[in-house]
């Protein structure tokens, strides 16, 4: 019998309302295994509002507060303040927000929380569009992706603009710890969650959380596609602690991005030439990442 690579404690209960094969459901499960039972979670309007199930049930074994979509940064500052005031400083504070609630409408609140040096972990679970409202583009939707508001019709080729660089924005605030995580790599995920939980000050996770209905792939492919995102260099896994960057999943030869793009309906319209362009961009950003890592 193989040893468990994740703690057996389950702080997410069954019976939740995530779609079959949901990436964000895995993200919460792994995250809480790392931060532990003494965690309070703040969730803005997002898929997890629904996943956590309607009153009177709840899918978390922990306290969870709902907030409007743009308020996660402020909410976790408030939770931290109350816990400190009430002498419960041991309790971890986690904000768990979607990509739209972070890079678009919640950006101000996130920036405020980072700048205030709130002792909390902000987790952005990135399924790369407004999925809870039915697949509308967000600032975090990748270029070329089909969504209901970036249709592939006539001359339109899906989203026309590149994905917003949230890690760049966050790192400009100099958090004590920031990392990219992927539900397809649970052991790396867990290590980062445990590490974040051991630190004080503002911390940030950018979690790739594939979405079967939104990306248009079968519900059993979530982990396969997640792995390809990292192994093609599209979503590299790294961490930045005190300004020092370290790639946590080293890659020799990158897999062709074609392998990742071709298995998702949202990219079904992309031509070989368009995929080649993505390939070049990914190669360049991967090289830049390695250069940054090499910097003293």
């Amino acid at each position: 019998m193989a040893k468990l690579t994740l703690p057996p404690v389950e702080l997410v209960r069954s019976g939740h309302s995530a779609c079959p094969g949901c990436g964000p459901a895995l993200a919460m499960r792994y995250l809480l295994k790392g931060t532990g039972e003494r965690t309070v979670v703040s969730v803005p309007a997002s898929c997890w509002t629904i996943i956590a199930t309607g009153y009177p049930t709840t899918a978390l074994r922990l306290p969870m507060i709902d907030t409007p979509i743009e308020a996660t940064g402020a909410s976790i500052s408030g939770l931290r303040a109350a816990l400190d005031a009430l002498h419960m400083s041991d309790v971890q504070v986690v904000g768990f927000a979607g990509d739209g609630g972070t890079v678009d409408i919640g950006l101000q609140s996130l920036s405020g929380m980072l700048e205030r040096r709130t002792d909390a972990l902000y987790v952005m679970y990135d399924n790369e569009a407004y999925m809870n409202t039915g697949i509308q583009r967000s600032g975090s939707t990748p270029e070329g992706a089909w969504t209901t508001t970036t249709p592939v019709e006539g001359m339109a080729r899906g989203k026309g603009e590149p994905k917003k660089d949230i890690m760049g924005i966050v790192l400009a605030h100099h958090p004590v710890y920031a990392a990219t995580l992927n539900v397809a790599y649970p052991e790396d995920f867990l290590r980062k969650a445990q590490k974040a939980a051991s630190l004080k000050g503002p911390r940030f996770f950018h979690v790739l959380a594939p979405c079967p209905p939104g990306w248009k792939f079968a519900s059993d492919q979530t982990v396969q596609i997640g792995r390809l995102a990292t192994d093609t260099g599209i979503f590299p896994l790294y961490e930045v602690e005190n300004g020092k960057l370290r790639v946590t999943r080293k890659l020799g030869q990158l897999k062709p991005v074609r392998d990742y793009i071709k298995v998702q309906g949202r990219f079904g319209h992309l031509t070989d030439a368009e995929i080649d362009t993505v390939e070049h961009e990914v190669q360049a950003s991967w090289a830049a990442l390695l250069q940054r890592e090499a910097r003293p």
Binding site: S42, T67, E70, G78, A85
Partner: peptide
């Protein structure tokens, strides 16, 4: 905070824990 919206959210979340 960086806005009144956040000011009240801080209070709501803090009050939700009993402060």
């Amino acid at each position: 905070v960086e806005s009144e919206h956040s000011a009240l959210q801080v209070c709501v979340s803090a009050a939700a824990l009993g402060a």
